Amino acid sequence: MGQRHVRKMLRKMAGGQPVEVEQVATLRSLALMAAVAEQFGYAYADTRQRHRNGPQMFFVPDPHPQARERAERNRVRYPDAATGGALPPVPADVLELFKARISYDLEGWHTDKQRTMLLYLVLTVLCVILGVRLGLGGTSPTVAATVAAVAWAALMAVTLFLVSVRRRKRARFAAILEAAGFTQTTEQSGRERYLPLTYQ
């Protein structure tokens, strides 16, 4: 499945223009696409989360001489990569690095505070609806309110746990990227990213 997306991406890159891909289901497939794109003269630019169609990933032509030379070599070695032939091998450490970059970019579109407030709002509304339905179903108002309150407290505890898990994941991704020489930067929107020193 991942290779099919890679070949489709390579066909788009034949024109030498910026490329975007979407409807890719797994993180491994996204990382594989980014790693192979790098072998054919493109640089990974960003990944955005589209709720209906999944992640949307962006690539741009890499203007650096080393990237141009690498792309030329690989076009000679793998002339049929876009149409079913062999693809360049991707080392495991390169794949893991792209997984960290893509994951960090995807997680960065909303801050912990924004995610938590949204979850609080949604869960509060759901618990109110639960209490109202129990009350309309014949349950005493006191019991209905108690059940709704207990459900709300339990869901809030789960939400806080999930936020802490997300923070630990981001810290792990950040450590991987910093060890690889990436630099943290903050966009005008306040979103944090890790970019290579050669990023333009």
Score class of each variant (00 low, 15 high):
Val36Thr: 06
Val158Leu: 10
Ser189Val: 13
Val158Phe: 12
Ala151Cys: 13
Thr186Pro: 01
Gln3Trp: 04
Lys113Thr: 09
Gly15Glu: 02
Ala175Met: 00
Asp62Tyr: 04
Ala86Lys: 14
His5Gln: 14
Gln23Ala: 14
Met33Trp: 08
Gly138Thr: 04
Phe58Arg: 11
Arg52Pro: 09
Ala171Gly: 13
Ala145Tyr: 10
Ala144Pro: 11
Gln56Val: 15
Ser103Asp: 07
Val125Lys: 06
Ala171His: 13
Ala100Met: 07
Val132Gly: 09
Leu134His: 01
Gly108Arg: 00
Arg115Asp: 03
Ser164Trp: 13
Ala71Phe: 06
Leu118Glu: 08
Ala145His: 12
Pro63Tyr: 09
Trp109Asp: 06
Ala151Val: 14
Ala175Ile: 01
Val122Lys: 06
Lys113Glu: 14
Gln49Ala: 11
Phe58Glu: 08
Leu118Pro: 01
Glu178Met: 13
Cys127Asn: 13
Lys113Tyr: 09
Val128Lys: 09
Thr116Ser: 03
Ser29Pro: 08
Arg48Phe: 10
Leu95Tyr: 02
Thr116Cys: 00
Ala149Asp: 06
Ala34Thr: 13
Val147Gly: 06
Ile129Ser: 04
Arg75Trp: 00
Ala43Gly: 11
Pro91His: 06
Gly84Ile: 10
Tyr44Lys: 01
Thr146Val: 15
Gln66Phe: 10
Pro89Met: 06
Gly2Cys: 09
Thr83Ile: 10
Val76Cys: 00
Phe182Met: 10
Ala45Thr: 11
Ile102Asp: 04
Thr47Ala: 11
Leu197Met: 08
Asp93Arg: 07
Asp80Leu: 14
Arg70Asp: 02
Arg101Ala: 00
Pro89Gln: 08
Gly41Asp: 02
Leu177Thr: 05
Gly108His: 02
Val90Gln: 05
Arg73Val: 06
Ala67Glu: 01
Asp105His: 03
Thr186Arg: 11
Phe161Ile: 12
Glu192Ser: 08
Gly135Ile: 13
Gln39Leu: 02
Ser140Arg: 12
Glu187Ser: 12
His64Val: 14
Pro55Gly: 03
Arg4Cys: 11
Tyr44Gly: 04
Asp93Asn: 00
Pro18Cys: 05
Leu155Asp: 07
Leu136Gly: 14
Glu187Ala: 15
Arg7Asn: 05
Asp46Cys: 10
Tyr44Leu: 01
Gln56Met: 15
Thr26Val: 05
Arg68His: 05
Gln188Ile: 09
Ser164Leu: 14
Ala175Trp: 07
Ser140Cys: 11
Leu118Asp: 00
Met1Arg: 14
His64Ala: 15
Val6Pro: 01
Tyr194Asp: 02
Gly108Ala: 04
Thr26Glu: 08
Tyr78Ile: 13
Ala154Arg: 05
Arg166Phe: 12
Pro63Lys: 10
Pro65Met: 10
Leu106Glu: 08
His64Tyr: 12
Tyr42Met: 09
Gly85Phe: 03
Cys127Glu: 11
Ile176Ala: 11
Lys12Arg: 15
Leu27Ser: 03
Val165Tyr: 12
Leu195Cys: 05
Leu134Trp: 09
Tyr104Gln: 05
Leu195Pro: 02
Val24Tyr: 11
Arg48Val: 03
Leu130His: 09
Asn53Lys: 15
Gln17Cys: 06
Leu177Ser: 04
Ala35Pro: 02
Leu97Ser: 04
Thr198Leu: 03
Asp105Phe: 00
His51Gln: 14
Ala35Phe: 00
Met57Gln: 15
Val128Trp: 05
Lys12Leu: 15
Pro79Trp: 08
Lys8His: 15
Thr198Cys: 03
Arg4Ser: 14
Val125Ala: 02
Gly16Asp: 06
Leu32Met: 14
